[in-house]
Design a protein around this nucleic acid. Sequence first.
DNA 1: CGTCTTTGACCCGCGC
DNA 2: GCGCGGGTCAAAGACG
Length: 370
Amino acid sequence: MIKEEIDSCVHPLDGGMAESDKEVELDATKAKVDKVRVENEKLKLLLSTFLTEYNSLQMHVSNVIRQQHEASMKLDDNGHEDLDVDISLTLGRSEQKISKKEEQVKKIIAENNSINNKEGSEKKIWAHGLGFWIQSFEDLDTNQTMMLDDVSREVKNKNVENKCLSSRKDVKTARNEDQHELLEEHEQPGLKKTRVCVKAPCEDPSINDGCQWRKYGQKTAKTNPLPRAYYRCSMSSNCPVRKQVQRCGEDDTSAYMTTYEGNHDHPLPMEATHMAAGTSAAASLLQSGASSSASLSHFFPFHHFSVSTTNSHPTVTLDLTQPNYDPNQLPNYPLSSSSLSFSSSGRPSPSKSHTLSFSGLRSQAPMNTY
DNA sequence: CGTCTTTGACCCGCGC
DNA sequence: GCGCGGGTCAAAGACG
């Protein structure tokens, strides 16, 4: 009432019609505000539902992981050290033989976990493919991860320091010897490093998968007139990871085949861990004997892939140019939401790059959550 | 000046 | 043993 009086004083020239219009307008605005409020409440409810579902999903995943862990512990009749390290998905490695370095790392993890368990905090550390160590979503302790990386680097640096070589031939021989040692140490006899090929639809060959790559060569293969580019990981001076990028064909200029080989010896950025998760999952599946398309499609329901062994190189090929998406499969894969995304950095070529990432691959490879 | 790309030469494994 | 082809090296140049 007072407000109306004030309004009539402020606008003495306005007639009764103007006042009634304003009342109508006010009512309309109030109605709009109420509507927005109701929508806001609905959104809040939706958000809380999502959060609840997310938490229950997390609990479900942790339970599954715990069950797998317990099952594997039961199967272990040797009664070794009670390690909380369950999975070591490392591209191109066999889990049959564990090197001293890995034993050292596992020992550190076990010691830390025993301490942490005393404190009532349950922690697990996962060894991811492509040489990247991560921890489960239950708790994230970067100190442990860094410690693992330090151990890894320390051992590697010592190996490098021990080599005092002069001529190029000696260096090459040493390189070959190192590779041979790695083969002997980590791989089954007669089998070379596992390769993971990713055929991706992309206009630019310089796909940014999260790592920094340095081009060290380019060749034109006889079988394919289009040049093949060779890259090595430049995030670490001694990182052995290589990748080859080759256009799939003259008539298929929008697709590139990227082949990854080796294990990173340094922490990876998040985009790279997604990629590593996908590739290492594929590699570990290959090594675990999941060679049939049927068994592999269980783990990669949304994309075509194939397995081949050429020149003793076990190779998993993920074809992301042909999505194998079937909505009917969704209920069977509650934890899967395989996706591929590209994003351009906008920088001018040749620095222009695209981001390639996987997410939610359902396999032994755990999901990264940060 | 440091880093990265280009490119010809070289090395090595594999098939014949 | 020889030749071929894939993979790597390293010098030179480009670039920021």
